[in-house]
Amino acid sequence: MGTTENVAPDRRTLTAHPVRTTKSTRHRRGFLAVLWANKKSRAGMLLLGLFVMTALIGPWIAPYSPYATNYAIMQTPTLHHWLGTTQNGQDVLSELIYGTRLSLEVTFVAGFGATAISIVMAFAAGYLGRWLDDILSFITNVFLVIPGLPLMVVLAAYSPVRGIIVIMAVLTVTGWAWGARVLRAQVLALRNRDYVIAARFAGEAPFRIMFREILPNMLSLVGANFLGASLAALLGAASLEFLGFGDPTALSWGSMLYWAQNSGALLQGQWAWIFAPGFCIALLGMSLILLNFGLDEISNPRLRGES
């Protein structure tokens, strides 16, 4: 289970191993096709698709408005309110459906941000190299060593405003280091490939080499990192919001859990109110893990033969 405090070992299992990726036609066939071909990652795509759909059409499929407070408060599941109602008399199911959008946003924005920083750091350190490499590697190591959740909490606490933007920023700042390390190793490996060296001798500009020759050959690793960073962001956001460092008025799965806990939902037998958001987080997390299985097989063909 993602304790986020012990991010280190968990993340490690979710990152594809940096292995030989040759210049292959496989990538050109398109990631989606390859992911679709794999049973596990297809399940992940379907699951993720379901959440994305919910986020998009949520307002139309939700039974009630999540802001309406005119129902009996603190109900356990009933025929009208499948997941019960809150301390303010809101419909939990509607909250859950509406909350999907923000939860997805936080997950992927922070995941994307962290991955972007990882890539920039990896290329700057691994390709431009030398003293820059020393400095950036040092910074990366410092961020790896500083415990994530306490840092998130302190950053969130000092921030003058509370809210979802802050959470995204905090998750991005604390989430890039592991990816930067893994990607840097891969950049170092790829920069000595024949075709990269050839491009260098041919006088191609460094940026062109990085983006045309190197990056396309580590896409699956980048993808795995994005999934790992997103999962960490999903769980990190849930923890932060649960601890009360989010914006409790914003509708997301994490803030639902915060309210449920603060209203003593479990102690009043309202298990559904707690169960549902947590389960959605877990399902979304699983879809990321499933997708990663597919990516892993692309970047690590050895696994294909063995399983």
């Binding site: 299992t13 769980l235 987080i281 997390g285 893990i289």
Partner: peptide, 11 residues
């Protein structure tokens, strides 16, 4: 590893 720890702990 996809389950939030606190959710599990609450239950």
């Amino acid at each position: 590893s996809a389950f939030p720890y606190f959710w599990f702990a609450l239950f």
